[in-house]
Simulated scan of single mutants.
Amino acid sequence: MLLAIDMGNTQTGLGLFDGDALAYAWRMPTDRSFTADELHVRLLGYLHMYGLSLDCIDTVAFAGVVPQLSREWEQAARRITERTIAVGSATAQVTKLRAPNPAEVGADRIANAVAAETCYGAPAIVVDFGTATNIDVVDEDGYYIGGAIAPGLRISMDALVARAARIASIPLDVPERAIGRTTTEAVQSGAILGTAAMVEGLVARIRRELEAPEACVIATGGLAGLVANATDAFDVVDQQLTLKGIAEIARRMGMFESAE
């Protein structure tokens, strides 16, 4: 089985693939203080939840945006198997990028582009709701060509609460209307409906630039489901898109085989 690891700035997603199927998935905090030992113990715990052991893992593939934690994960992975690979320069031959500075493109964005083309076709637009809200664009030939990066929904909310003395922490719920009748509703409208409106506007502009009005729009990331309830901009909500992209890259590198 293949263990795919998506290390974000706030959360880390883990997925265990059996052939094409994502058999198990977990999420954990991204803590920069974690050592390889701590990661090893946590992974053991997740596997034991389902009666599994480290012996079931023969390949580990990961994409990370936190360099120091990537090194710790690599050490933890090599305790399990020598078949490990990180999305990036080592996998460039099996990914398609049309970017002025390919080294600047985050590994998670590369994985999203690969998964979007593989699972949903091209052209495609991926909106990833994480620490940042990333929009990744795949052209008609399946190449990642760029996108947009905006502050994530939680970052925006945290900043508002920290700077506005009269606003306490407010739950992230989709309001019934854009005109908030209370402070809570007004903040929810600005944060959630505002994020949805931003996505709608950027998706419309990107489709025009691509000259592809029917380009598939995929939402992923921890808050994808929440924002999807506030807009009809998305054709698909796929919470595991990044993990699927990591697994696909490992397959293309010949490190993992699809089910027949």
Rank of each mutant, 00 (worst) to 15 (best):
G15V: 00
L193M: 13
V237K: 14
D232P: 08
L2M: 06
L14R: 01
N9H: 04
D58M: 07
F62V: 15
T131C: 00
V60P: 10
M1T: 02
L52C: 13
M198Y: 11
P171A: 11
V237T: 05
D20Q: 03
V127K: 04
R98M: 05
V65P: 15
A162R: 14
L202V: 13
A219S: 02
G194P: 15
D232Q: 12
G152E: 08
L153E: 02
Q75V: 14
T84A: 08
T183E: 08
R177I: 12
I149Y: 05
R205L: 09
I85R: 14
A113F: 02
Y120K: 15
A162Y: 01
A165L: 09
T95M: 12
S33N: 02
G147E: 08
L3I: 06
A259V: 06
H48C: 10
G19I: 03
V138S: 06
R207Y: 00
D58G: 11
A228E: 07
E214M: 04
V203H: 09
A197H: 14
T195Y: 10
M157V: 14
L160A: 14
L193K: 12
L14Y: 00
S189F: 09
M1L: 12
Y46M: 09
A92R: 13
F129W: 04
A107G: 03
G130W: 00
T30H: 05
S89V: 11
G201D: 01
D37W: 07
A212I: 06
E200N: 12
I149G: 10
R27W: 00
Y143C: 10
L243G: 04
Y144S: 03
L69C: 07
I206C: 07
D232N: 06
A76S: 11
L3A: 08
C119G: 01
A116R: 00
E82C: 08
I206Y: 05
A4C: 02
A115Q: 00
A178G: 08
S89C: 05
A21W: 00
A224V: 07
Q68L: 15
R71T: 09
G13M: 02
R205F: 01
